[in-house]
Write a protein that binds this DNA or RNA. Structure first.
Lengths: 234, 234
DNA sequence: TCACCATCTGAACAGTGTTCAGGGCGCTAA
DNA sequence: TTAGCGCCCTGAACACTGTTCAGATGGTGA
């Protein structure tokens, strides 16, 4: 019996249409200005129909955020399996530079995804949407491994902890992207050049072998956000 | 006749009450979850009354943003008149470090103000609310002068442009604050220590004398945001 | 053929920002 | 004192929002 399968396919098609419509509308009008009714109208369904596919508007948001992390991972592919390949043309440091830079580029290519993933405060508890962060963790781990290979190759000080360096390298560009996306910085200030400089300055700073305060915290948490993993899920 | 004056005072009192109520509600419930009706209820007025004090909810927002910049300037006072005093106890660089750090601290003490000023994308065209940015420009100019004094004192390379260094120093902390405020980073990662390290790393990077791409753009714009001042205002 | 069941719809509820005619009250001038 | 003027505020309404639910619809399996 292929009927069940066809029904599931139909359902998936509608679900996909909802997500596509929502994404297009978010990009062109901004998340806050998109209503369930607009999405429903776009796909020629009643607003109520959407609630049999997603429990709430927030969950449409979460589904798109998960897509965003997957896209970011696709846009910033680092070597193979996270280990730097010794026969690659560039040095590990160049590799790292480019990989981090691609995160910034992603904020340029998909500002709505980026805001959704890293900036938006209006959507509650992004931290608890578990499956969103599988790809996020993957990408993070690959970058961490790449930084470790830079340390092993002697391009970064041996005293440096890869987890800390990872945060320091990415957070600045997140700030840059945040300012640009929310129009807090003029195009005349050439945000791209500033971002590039910020990356170079941070790397140079890391290479200086400065002793870091955040060097020793207990363990590197796998979660992006701040909820106690030891507490039982309700 | 003191009647006009008293009327103006009464009006200012109500205006002040609106702003206070809005600020309290924003802090405790978040901007998006605060309605005109809630603010009106708090001050025991009808919702419509507020519209004779502020043209829209956005303008209440703008008024608070302006307050935010004033508060930030008060929280991060730098020397006197922007010029570093030679008899001060610390070096210019220590002075700079502390001044920049206070911006991050501000994001901790007043997260709602901070989000409002630097992060929120839901409110349109923050750039066009002119008078908001008088104090913003003042604070920026003072920091720039402080950085210049660091360069003059030899603590930072003479090839460095103060405007560029200013951006590079602040943008990273903005990113850090953004991640923390929007719960994208765990407290277990000790964001404060990371932020402090980021500041130190950036300064170390600047001291390395690296050649910067964004060194030479035409002129430093006085505006925070990106609108062409040469185009006529509609 | 008929009962079943998932799916979708129309209507409604409670909430939002905003507008507007009108009432009330204090001030000014006759 | 009183008439009138003008400001300020209110209640009601409009057009939205996210969400819920009874009921219509129509394909599915017996």
């Amino acid at each position: 019996m292929g009927i069940k399968e066809r029904q599931e396919r139909d359902r998936e098609t509608v679900r996909r249409a909802i997500l596509d419509a929502a994404r297009d509308l978010f990009v062109s009008e901004g998340y806050a200005n998109v209503s369930i009714r607009k999405i429903a109208e776009r796909i020629e369904y009643s607003p109520a129909a959407l609630y049999s596919y997603f429990p709430s508007k927030d969950d449409i948001f979460f589904a798109l955020a998960a897509e965003g992390f997957t896209r970011l991972n696709e846009a910033a592919p680092i070597g193979s399996g996270g280990r730097f390949h010794p026969a690659a043309p560039a040095t590990p440091l160049d590799h790292l530079r480019e990989s981090v830079w691609r995160i910034y580029q992603f904020s340029y290519d998909h500002p709505e995804y980026f805001a959704l993933m890293f900036l938006d405060r209006t959507v509650p508890r992004l931290s608890q949407a578990d499956e969103c962060f599988v790809s996020a963790r993957e990408g993070k781990e690959r970058l961490r491994a790449l930084i470790q290979s830079c340390i092993d190759a002697g391009d970064l000080p041996a005293t440096l902890r890869a987890e800390v360096a990872l945060r320091l390298l990415t957070v600045g560009l997140v700030g840059m992207a945040a300012l640009r996306i929310s129009h807090r910085i003029s195009e005349r200030e050439r945000p791209d050049a500033l971002a590039r400089d910020l990356l170079d300055v941070t790397i140079a700073g890391l290479q200086s072998g400065l002793a870091l305060r955040s060097y020793s915290f207990e363990e590197w948490p796998l979660e992006i956000a701040a909820h106690d993993p030891s507490s039982p899920s309700s």
